[in-house]
């Protein structure tokens, strides 16, 4: 039995627009285990980043309900002072754009050192420098004693992302949240960074939440996958099950819309319509139903819940049983066409 690291219970993160609150993350429950990579997938606007920011307590103007249990502490209920002790120490975060997420006017060494100083008050200057050099080495940056005094703009994109990672792992956090860590990078750099994250995970035994819209990255990295749509998890399964036996129409649509380097496809699947904006999110019934209008209304549940279909494989709504792609109702469409 995997050891629980983080448990999210009925988390709702809402933003105020004019006079009403709209939930970007809606009554979401999820656990992350030690030494596992949990991928969260979905299009932009589905609430994955809002979820990550909630876990890190980084929302400044959101209303957060529900519990985020880390060890015996509830992050969702912490005061700013308490959460500052956890962030950067137990929880580390890697951001999408390594250029904008580094302070342009601060030396690399100082930026990494800051994470150390904040959580280890008694470290001497020399000790910090030593540790920073160590970290730069660990993330595979050549000539660390030179890079330590450089500024972000002097490094390449891949090197900058390594710096961001070094910052996130400085205090060996137990939980690492990586928010689209390779989206801004070239494909060869991407594979190096992913490999690095994997290596660090094995060294530190941490749990990783990997947020991405790239299903290839998911297939390569994840142990378990949560597919999010409109603030909810619509499908949750281990990675092999999800790719071999995807159930929810949204998951299947996503898989079908990716051009696959291994197979010939003439046409890619297009999900009808667009991800609704926060104010226009359907709040009742199956939220994905509007984008699969050819599926009969009676196929959807009135109050769809995430239900376990087989052990460890959870799906929301019953519509998956009645779903097929419109053109040629062939289930294998994403494999052959």
């Amino acid at each position: 039995m995997a050891e629980k690291l983080l448990e999210i219970k009925n988390l709702t993160t809402s933003f105020r627009i004019k006079d009403d609150y709209y939930a970007a993350v809606d009554n979401l429950s999820l656990t992350v285990n030690k030494n596992e990579v949990l991928a969260i997938v979905g299009e932009s606007g589905c609430g994955k980043s809002a979820l990550a920011f909630s876990i890190m307590g980084l929302h400044t103007r959101a209303k957060i309900d529900g519990d985020i249990l880390y060890k015996d502490k509830n992050i969702a209920k912490m005061s700013p002072a308490e959460i500052n002790k956890v962030r950067g120490k137990d929880l580390g975060m890697i951001f999408q754009d390594p250029l904008t997420s580094l302070n342009p006017l601060m030396e690399i060494g100082d930026q990494i050192g800051e994470t150390l100083i904040l959580h280890n008050k008694n470290l001497s200057k020399n000790k910090i420098r030593e540790k920073v050099l160590d970290l730069l080495n660990k993330v595979g940056i050549p000539r660390p004693e030179y890079v330590i005094n450089q500024f972000p703009h002097e490094l390449s994109g891949g090197m900058r992302q390594r710096v961001v990672i070094a910052m996130a792992i400085a205090n060996e956090p137990e939980l690492l949240i990586a928010d689209e860590p390779t989206t801004a990078l070239d494909v060869t750099i991407q594979s190096q960074i992913l490999e690095l994250i994997n290596k660090l995970k094995n060294e530190m035994n941490s749990g990783i939440i990997l947020i991405t819209h790239d299903l290839g990255v998911v297939a390569e990295m994840a142990d378990r996958v949560a597919v999010m749509y409109a603030g909810q998890i619509v499908e949750l399964a281990d990675v092999k099950t999800l790719f071999e036996n995807p159930l929810h129409p949204y998951t299947r649509s996503l898989l079908n819309s990716v051009p696959n380097a291994n197979e010939e496809q003439d046409k890619l699947h297009v999900i009808q319509g667009i991800v609704p904006s926060l104010q226009n999110l359907p709040r009742e019934g199956c939220r994905f139903s509007a984008r699969i209008p050819w599926v009969d209304e009676t196929a959807h549940e009135a109050h769809p819940e995430l239900k376990e279909v087989t052990p460890g494989h959870l799906v929301r709504c019953t519509c998956y049983k009645h779903f097929s792609f419109p053109d040629d109702s062939k289930e294998e469409q994403h494999v052959l066409s």
Partner: peptide, 10 residues
């Protein structure tokens, strides 16, 4: 963005 990074460091 780097302000968020700073907050995330604690």
């Amino acid at each position: 963005d780097f302000i968020i990074t700073a907050r995330a460091k604690g």
